[in-house]
Simulated assay, not measured.
Amino acid sequence: MTVTQLFNGANLFILPFWTLMIFLPQWGITKKVMESYLPFIPLIVLYIYFLTGTLNAESAQALANPQLADIARFFGEEGAAATGWAHFLVMDLFVGRWIYWEGQRTGVWTMHSIVLCLFAGPVGLLSHILTAWTTQRFFSPTETESASIG
């Protein structure tokens, strides 16, 4: 398989997981699938494959002592860009899965944060942090209110 085919396959591979978390978060199958770390294994293996195919003495030196110009040159190569993209896929899915499970655990609404995480991982993480904080701060009963209700 070519780098392009593996790249395209990885993009398709992640879609069912994101679809389940976004559109069917309460479904038992979603919970069963997302409790497993197995979906990450093929992506990690692909990342390692891309990484080992792009690392050489020059690129390893550039990554060991990162300078922006060297990193830009490194990612200008197709294999290196695929490596970076595989890294994004793994880490964004991992963070999206964490957001999903935090929502399940706390009851905080997560759909918007998971969607943002799919397209811009750090923005989705920030969205969840702010949503969780806002929910806890303004919409959760305080200890005093809980005591008087119970």
Rank of each mutant, 00 (worst) to 15 (best):
H128F: 15
W133L: 14
H128I: 05
F40W: 07
E102S: 11
F13G: 08
Y37M: 00
N11K: 01
V90R: 02
V33S: 02
N56E: 11
A10Q: 14
T134F: 15
E78A: 14
G121F: 01
E77H: 09
M21D: 01
M91F: 13
Y47G: 06
Q26P: 03
S146Y: 04
F50W: 06
G76N: 08
L130C: 14
P25H: 02
W18L: 00
A10V: 03
W27E: 10
G84R: 05
T135V: 04
T2Q: 08
W133I: 01
F23C: 15
G96C: 06
F75M: 10
F50L: 05
L89T: 03
L38S: 08
L51C: 12
G79N: 14
S113I: 00
F50Q: 04
R73V: 04
A120V: 08
A132F: 10
P66E: 10
V90N: 02
C117W: 04
N11L: 06
N11Y: 00
P39A: 03
Q5Y: 02
A132K: 14
H112Q: 15
V115M: 13
F40D: 06
M34L: 15
T30A: 02
A57R: 14
R73E: 13
Q104W: 05
L46Y: 06
D70Q: 12
V90H: 01
A60D: 07
I129Y: 15
G76S: 08
Q104E: 12
N8W: 07
F74Q: 03
T135I: 00
E102M: 07
E35R: 13
L125H: 05
Q136R: 15
R97E: 02
W109C: 08
